[in-house]
Simulated assay, not measured.
Amino acid sequence: MLKLKPGQLISENSLCTRYNVSRTPIRSALSRLAGVGLVDIVPKSGSRVSMINMEIVKQIIYERFALESMVLKDFIAIATESDIKKIEKSVIKLTKSYENTKNFKPDKFKETDLSMHELWYKKTGHTYLWEQIRKSDSNYTRFCMLDMLECKNYEQVILEHKQMYEMIKNRDTSKIEEIVKKHLYGGVERVNAALSNKFDEMFIAY
């Protein structure tokens, strides 16, 4: 994801040549991508990668902040020592995946990041909610990837996961909103800091 930047024009001819197919399957694929919000098809003008709608991103973060704060509070109330150990292992795995620079893969790092969150959603019986998060709107999904790949947020993510682990281990619910808010809204601050130069052409202007 993000190999083609938001706003970038899409050449049907190039895609036909690359995949050695006619225009019909290419247009069908672009139509499906448009259906999930990843492509804008402009009649008589061609197609382009859709811009990221920052207003939608902010609303999804707001929703997830409210939800995740409640789920984490419920998790702390019922977590066993075995559950806490799993969280610890997840943080260790996340840290080691970044330290192993030779074999570091951003997509694997992101999956390890998400696996920690998945633990407390499943433990509290909110599997459906977690599945909805994983199917997040394309604006939010691409925003998260942009933050990770362009802003290089790895060390900050590791630090925040360590803070969440300590909070869970100590069964301290007093800092849930503070830590979760910092974790979820950090990307907005990082991208905003860069918005005036290399990222501004990727977002819908308001």
Rank of each mutant, 00 (worst) to 15 (best):
K86M: 12
I76S: 05
S31A: 12
V49F: 08
I92S: 11
A29R: 08
G46K: 12
S50H: 10
M51K: 15
M54I: 09
T95N: 10
D83R: 04
I84N: 05
E88T: 08
R48V: 02
Y62W: 08
N13T: 12
K89C: 04
K73E: 15
S82V: 07
T24F: 07
P25Q: 14
E88C: 07
Y19H: 14
K44N: 11
E88I: 03
G46H: 13
R23I: 07
S97H: 11
R27C: 02
T24G: 06
E68W: 02
L38V: 05
A77V: 09
K93Y: 00
D40H: 01
S28C: 05
M70R: 15
R27W: 01
G46W: 13
E12M: 09
I10A: 06
K89I: 10
E81I: 00
V42P: 04
G7L: 14
S97Q: 10
S69F: 07
I56P: 00
A77W: 02
R64M: 08
V21S: 05
E88Y: 12
D74C: 05
Q59S: 15
P25S: 12
V36G: 01
P25V: 10
R48L: 09
V49T: 12
N53M: 09
P25L: 11
T95W: 01
N53S: 13
I76H: 04
E81M: 04
I10P: 03
Y62P: 00
Q59A: 10
R23A: 12
T95G: 03
M70Q: 15
K96V: 04
G46N: 10
E12A: 06
E55G: 00
S28Y: 10
I76V: 07
R32W: 01
E12I: 15
T95R: 14
Y98C: 11
Y98H: 14
T24N: 13
T80K: 11
I41H: 06
L9N: 09
S28Q: 14
L30A: 04
R27S: 03
L72P: 02
K93Q: 07
I84Y: 02
S45K: 15
E12Y: 00
N13R: 15
L38R: 09
I10F: 02
S14F: 01
L9W: 00
D40Q: 07
R32M: 07
A77H: 13
S14C: 03
T80A: 03
F65D: 13
R18K: 12
K89M: 11
C16G: 02
K93T: 09
R27K: 15
I56K: 14
I56V: 14
I84M: 06
I26Y: 02
S31G: 02
R18T: 08
M70H: 14
Q8T: 10
K89A: 11
M54H: 08
Q8F: 00
L72I: 10
G7R: 13
G7M: 14
L9S: 11
E81H: 06
Q8L: 01
T95E: 14
I10D: 03
E63R: 13
E81D: 14
G35H: 06
K86L: 15
I41W: 00
K58I: 07
K44V: 04
Y62M: 11
R23Q: 14
L94W: 04
V91F: 01
K58G: 03
D83C: 01
